[in-house]
Design a protein around this nucleic acid. Structure first.
Lengths: 158, 158
DNA sequence: CGAAGAACATTGCGCATTCAACATTTGCAG
DNA sequence: CTGCAAATGTTGAATGCGCAATGTTCTTCG
């Protein structure tokens, strides 16, 4: 027989879903309004700006963003069109295209990052005390440790 | 000047995003594979089954699911096509359409619920201890209390 | 070396979603 | 009572994403 969720578990689960949905919606709205950037696009810029040479292989970037190859191709299409990212064929492997941050892209991420961080604080962290924040971090670590390694080992830019 | 996230805060935030994405993807895959139901469709059935008379106004249902009116119209289209939900014009207000759970819909939700709950346990709750679960619940409550009431007061079917 | 198979990026197609426009109905102000 | 604004649901156009198929390049193994 199924063991249903008790009150604590229900609050933990439904709260997670609700809060996450709300916070993400707010962040999206603020980022779009103030910088014309969708959260998905912001994610691309964040990863590129943190990467060696401000560039990543399409393949790796897609995995990091939990995006399908075709999904990333089109997201990059958009960022190329707005001039924030540039495509560059790899010299070492001619199958590979690298997405490279342009100067405009660097400006955009520098402008948008404070908005994003501020949003995370205002909509989430400001309402939690230090203990709760630490417990959250430990909880996610426990869950991720138990999870088959989706985006395994070999990156340190996170 | 922007106050950036410290290590604890970063772990709490990025972990939240990552874990949520992973768990939702797993739940979706399992639900689709075993019951042919997307999480979004499951959500409709859950809300209807918990509602008075197993029916809700389109309008209220859309708000509860954080979905636009047109988005809900089309999601219900799908569920009507597969016979899990039925449309019924309201008697009191002729602008209103009510989405009603059919017997097939009731069967579907009863069949799928154990899969969903089991998934929430296996992918999330099983890796947390009781203290962490309670802190999570309290954290979400704090965040939601501070949030302008998106889905305000007058419902008790949650 | 040479061929088979894997890896990478893109494209076509279908599906789900949102926004804007619309038609109908209700509620309210005067 | 009248008329106008708000509420409700649907449709059309546009967007974003995933899956499958494709073309190219690399790698591995006989």
């Amino acid at each position: 027989m199924t063991r249903w969720l008790d009150d604590d578990e229900m609050r933990a689960w439904r709260g997670l879903v609700e809060v996450m949905a709300g916070v993400e919606a707010d962040l999206e709205a603020e980022l779009v309004e103030r910088h014309g950037l969708a959260v998905g696009e912001y994610g691309v810029l964040v990863h590129l700006s943190e990467a060696e040479g401000e560039a990543m292989r399409m393949c790796d970037l897609a995995a990091r963003l939990h995006l399908s190859p075709s999904g990333l191709t089109r997201r990059i299409d958009g960022l190329v069109r707005t001039g924030l990212v540039r495509r560059e064929p790899s010299k070492e492997d001619r199958r590979v295209m690298r997405a490279v941050l342009t100067p405009a892209g660097r400006s955009a991420i520098h402008a948008a990052a404070p908005t994003h961080v501020d949003g995370v604080r205002r909509h989430l962290l400001d309402h939690l005390d230090r203990t709760q924040i630490r417990v959250l971090g430990q909880a996610w670590a426990a869950v991720q440790a138990a999870r088959p390694n989706r985006a395994g080992a070999p990156k340190r830019t996170d």
